[in-house]
Write a protein that binds this DNA or RNA. Structure first.
Lengths: 214, 214
DNA sequence: ACAAAACAAGTTGTCGACAATATAGCACCT
DNA sequence: AGGTGCTATATTGTCGACAACTTGTTTTGT
């Protein structure tokens, strides 16, 4: 979605952000009437927003009962990262095939600016920078399904876990090297290697998070 | 979804089947008023059904303009199979880790009954049998996201392509051998190999279909 | 004749009201 | 006391009407 147009669009985005950023607690019930007063729209709009959130797996709905925000669990996070490993690995493979030389050059440039920031001691990298890096590779796959699954579905959930289980952690320097190697593989148009490195990169990240949870 | 409960559920399923089975043409516009008379429900119900179809990537919607059934293209089919390769490969990997011994035994038994059918010269195998096989492995992954993405999203689209581009083709005997090897890898709890074999299996299937298209 | 603005028709988006269903509490029976 | 069935309440599901928007046509001005 490029830009929210309708009232339902805006409400969907607002509600999603409120959930992902933890202003609405995980596991809590979503009352349609309550939300319709809170966001000052009709119940129809709220229902559409909730339906979309259900499609992203951010809420679960039972017929004639209602919708709840999903509950977070270590197991859920692991499952999420398994899917990420699979999809982003394929994204890296396809990016090595499908990105234009210009796009790869841009990616390389982005990496360099990240490096400068890391050197400068800014912690900005971890959050926005990391997301930006993955973002470009996923787009570089040129695969509509892949792009939509990761952006509309997985990434918001990942962020939800990050925020609510408090993982603003480091892992900056090693991640930077991993990124560098992935870009190098893409530069060499080595699809096989790009996929493998991306999968490892995500596996490391998963292990890192798992370690913090325990 | 285990069973359609509400009117919106039923309409969603009915509409989806009508599209997937080609009774509503790919690329055609979906008028809400028209559909509401056709399925004898209110526009609100139709809207919910269309929203869900959009989440499955079966229709595309533009704000204030309307919804169209997606257009089928060779490129689209290839992208679909790329995602399938990635997700089902991971499913096979996880199945090798997470399926119980009983479930694996069942899977083996299923394979045997398929073999009998193939030997008996029935062509039943390709469609239902193949789906059943993949179905069990995906479930065996025990990964909620994987299961939902494949069943709710990818598989209906794959079937849509199969039906509308007329691919009821063979590839039975070789596919059977591939299935056998995958089960063997799962039996040995060899996750690595199971993933690789499943990915190849799907790649072969993709190549086969691509070949028919050209 | 052409361009731009105004209009008209039809479609989608939003709303409030009503119907159907689930949940909790209470009475009642065993 | 424990369980069962009913009732009351609240929530979700469905509907028809109205508002907002898009698109194609007509009108009007130059």
């Amino acid at each position: 979605m490029i830009q929210p147009i309708t009232s339902a669009d805006k409400t969907f985005v607002a509600l999603r952000d409120d959930i992902v950023e933890g202003r609405i607690q995980a596991g809590s019930k979503l009352s349609e009437t309550e939300l319709s007063t809170k966001y000052a729209v009709s119940r129809a709009v709220i229902r559409e927003a909730i339906n979309r959130l259900e499609s992203c797996h951010i809420v679960e709905r039972k017929a004639n009962v209602g919708a709840r925000v999903v509950a977070l669990s270590p197991q859920g996070l692991i499952e999420l990262y398994q899917v990420r490993e699979s999809l982003e690995g394929m994204a890296a493979r396809l990016a090595a095939k499908n990105m234009t030389d210009d796009e790869i050059a841009d990616l390389n440039h982005l990496l360099q600016s990240h490096f400068d920031e890391v050197k400068g001691g800014e912690s900005y990298y971890q959050e926005a920078g990391d997301v930006d890096f993955h973002y470009r590779i996923i787009l570089g796959s040129k695969n509509k399904h892949l792009i939509s699954m990761l952006f509309d579905g997985i990434y918001h959930l990942v962020r939800m876990y990050r925020v609510q289980l408090g993982m603003a952690g480091p892992r900056v320097t090693t991640a930077y090297d991993e990124h560098k190697h992935i870009v190098q593989a893409i530069l060499n148009r080595d699809a096989e290697l790009a996929e493998m490195l991306m999968r490892r990169h995500i596996m490391y990240s998963k292990n890192n998070i798992e370690h913090k949870l325990s």
